[in-house]
Design a protein around this nucleic acid. Structure first.
Lengths: 230, 230
DNA sequence: GCAAATATAATAGTAATACTATCATAAATG
DNA sequence: CATTTATGATAGTATTACTATTATATTTGC
């Protein structure tokens, strides 16, 4: 899988950038360092000026790739969801039983992400932390409808749709597959944040990943099915 | 209930403000107009300068009540959770069956909020919209641990704890009551936002409030109980 | 191998933001 | 009625989120 990915780049809506950052060394450096910097200082304190200093380049040069730091955040989150969909597509290939596919999808969606090194300039571990802590800032804005019209959330919606389809395979009468999956994804992200910063909002259980277990259990019970590994 | 509230003010951690806005006409005006203005322009575009113009007062005067717009947001969200806990305390009083109490609590936590006029200077309808769209910006910050230490999220944690206790009354062996409730609250908020702006992430069902139904169903199934109104 | 196109760097500039400081005036209180 | 306290008016600072201009590399097409 490593080799499959190395000469492979994920698709991101081309309206989130002015110039494709994948197309040049500087562009990749911008993406790579923005992940480090946002992870380090948080999105509010992150500026193109600081990023320019960090990569020994120029603020104005960064603006030739991204219109604003919000667009850069949209780029990062879109990339993430596109990556997640590939992980799921590969992970579920050749699993015939929809219950098993669903269980695997839930695991992939809710597990802790580790650095996997498939993409040289993207640190998936840090990107996951950014998506958890900052991604709501990319859609909880006054521009959400405009951005939605331009297709900036297409990847996320497609991912939710795909996993919902598995639910409908298992239980075609379940009424809320999209709600369930989007709640699950956002919920697991929130729980990872809470576990670190507001533990009273979670329930840590030793010796297991409580967030994955909770997610699986809640999902399968909601649709009235048994999950394979139980 | 209206009369119970009129001479009644909700408790907010006194470290989120410099001077208690409940203590003066200007303070109440600041709170009232900040709700209108944040609802109108969004939290990013909201500034104390604009708020000063709006209320024909002075930027510097507002800074005498709140250290920053983030603290003001913390004030608003703390007030909201404190209000929600009162709604639940009143709403569940005299209901002996824990299943019924849980069902009522879920309804109160996830329903659409309407203006109820119990507090002259607070528009609960708009405040609910603000909490849905902006509250994550009050804790998804680099200062979260510091803020947590100072007790800024105590109201929210207490609310989650209280509802979790009802779950444990119904099913003392359920392992994830806090996760379930915090996921439920955040999830329902997200769903209300998605329903308006990103409907492909939800499932609208005619003639019912799908978000409340989904929340009840998922919660009771997760803990292995039947909900009374079913 | 060189001209022309293109990308990047360096610098400067602007309006707005998120404050702080100072001083004057108005309102409340003892 | 004097004094404390709250508010208003104004100004000032560092930073942000850009845009514009010009100079210098780097790439490419012939």
């Amino acid at each position: 899988m490593q080799d499959l990915f190395t000469s492979f780049s994920l698709q991101v809506n081309n309206r989130v950038y002015i110039k494709n950052p994948e197309s040049s060394a500087l562009g990749r450096k911008i993406v790579e360092s923005s992940i480090n910097l946002i992870d380090e200082v948080g999105f509010e304190a992150f500026t193109f000026r600081k990023l320019g200093l960090e990569i020994h380049s120029n603020e104005a040069s960064i603006y030739r790739y991204f219109e604003s730091k919000y667009k850069l955040l949209l780029y990062l989150t879109s990339w993430y969801w596109s990556w997640m969909e590939y992980r799921i597509a590969f992970g579920l290939a050749n699993i015939p039983a929809p219950e098993e596919r669903l269980e695997k999808a839930i695991k992939l969606l809710t597990e802790n992400i580790e650095l996997d090194g498939s993409f040289e300039h993207i640190n998936e571990y840090k990107l996951n932390k950014i998506v958890i802590a900052e991604s709501s800032k990319s859609y909880m804005t006054k521009e959400v409808d405009q951005n939605n019209k331009e297709g900036f959330f297409a990847g996320y919606k497609q991912l939710v749709g795909r996993v919902s389809d598995i639910i409908l395979e298992i239980n075609p009468t379940y009424k809320y597959p999209h709600m369930l999956i989007s709640t699950l994804i956002e919920g697991a992200h929130h729980q990872r944040f809470f576990a670190q910063h507001l533990p009273r909002l979670t329930d840590a259980v030793n010796g297991e990943d409580a967030i994955i277990e909770f997610s699986k259990e809640a999902t399968f019970k909601a649709i009235g099915a048994k999950w394979p590994s139980k």
